[in-house]
Every structure is written in structure tokens, then in C-alpha cells.
Amino acid sequence: MAGESGKIDPMYQFKIESLAPLNIAGYDVSFTNSSLFMVLVLGALWLFMWGGMKRDLVPGRWQMAVEGVTGFVNNMVTSSVGPEGKKYVPLVFSLFMFILMANFIGMMPFGIVPGVHPFTVTSHLTVTAVLAVLSFGTVLVVGFWKHGLHFFSLFVPHGTPWWLLWLIPLIELFSFLIRPFSLALRLFVAMTAGHVLMKVLAGFVINGLNAEAAWVPLVVSIPSFILMIGITLLELLVCAIQAYVFALLTSLYINDAVNLH
């Protein structure tokens, strides 16, 4: 967080640092702080799901929470894809829960322990791009698997007037191809912007307190601190919403692939 000069660099939180160097086939696949937080996400998610595995007839609180989330994702997929969507629940659930957990773990105040920096996995374009490619790739595979070349009829919506047949497929194709980019960028930008904003506000609070003039903390730090509480709550909301949007769009895209238009 703190640079050498005592300045607060809001971008430092996104820096990837190698923790255990590893090299496979000429590629640098070191275990980094990013990898560490991915593993933490996996552990947290596994723990969460494990608590819901008691499989009682009358669920306890934890089981209720797990069943609430699984029911939510199940509902989302089946309502947008239909009964055929059952097959894709594991994928959408994994995407949703991974993004949700990564977002929330990135928001946890690990920073109060000296030397520990929280890291938001989903604020990295490389990560969101892989997730988006997974989502988009599923759509392509399912679409061509189920419909073959007929899948291209996706680009000619029903009721297209014949004199627009040269334009509409182009627009549809473009909007189709832009999907992975919009998926990846939306999540990446939302998480990055939120964390930068929070870090900047936190910088205001700290720098204000460190200022020599006595009025600065009053005028700068306290309002910034109050604002930061609100922004933090908003960020928590954004964490959930971004995970939801990603999962919802994925299920809508899968619907296109399964049912065409």
C-alpha cells in the first residue's frame, strides 16, 4: 500500500508478487499472491459448501444458506434456459460462486494484519478473461454441438425483413463476438474501479490525519471516512451484483445456444 516515499499508491493493491517461483515448460507459473487468493477462494467455497452437506430433511442455518444459494442459481438457470438448463447449473454455479467469493475475499480487511495485503482475484483482466472465455466457449461448444451449422441462424432473428438481411446478421454477429469482452471487462472494471476508489478515499483519511494543519483532519479525513463507509457498503453490493450479472448473462447466452432464438 505504501510506496517508498510514504505516498499511498492506489494501484499497489493489484500488483502480483511471486511467492514461490515455479517454471513449467519455459512458462513462469510461479505461485503468486494472486494464486494464493484463488486457493483461498477455493478453500472458503469448499468450506461453505461442506457446511451444507449434512443433507438433513429439516435444514439448519448453514444448510439453509447453502441451499438458498444453490436454489438461487438453479432458479436463474432454469428460468432463462428452461428444463434443459439443468446440465449447465454446475458451470454457472461455479462461475457465480468463484466470482462472488473472490469479490468478497478481496473486500475483507486482511490489511489490518501488518504485512498482509488482500488481493482481489477478479480485478485482474487475465482472470476475468479466462472466466469469460469459459462462458463464451461453453456457448460455442453447446451451440455447434446441438445445432451444427444451424447455429448460425442465431444471427438472423425471426421477423427480419428481407431488405435488412445484409445488415442484421452483421450486427448480430458483432454483438455475439463482443460478448466475451464485455463479460471480462465489466467485471474487471467494476472491481478495479471500486478498489481504487476505496484506496483513494483511505489515502485521504490517512494523509489528512498526518497533515500538519489542524483543520485538515476535520475537513478532509472525517468526511472521507464517512463517505468511505458508504462506498464500502456500495462495493459489497457491487461484489454481489457483478457475480450475479456474470452468471445471469452466462445463462442467457447458454439459452441462445440451447434454444437459438
Partner: peptide, 16 residues
């Protein structure tokens, strides 16, 4: 970092 990111993400996401 892309190689490390892809590698570990695919492992973790595959496990999930």
C-alpha cells in the same frame, strides 16, 4: 504474469 494466472486459475476453477 499471464501464464501463472491462467495456470492457477484453471487449476482452481477446475477443482471448483
Amino acid at each position: 504474469t499471464y501464464a501463472s494466472q491462467f495456470f492457477w486459475l484453471l487449476i482452481v476453477f477446475g477443482l471448483i
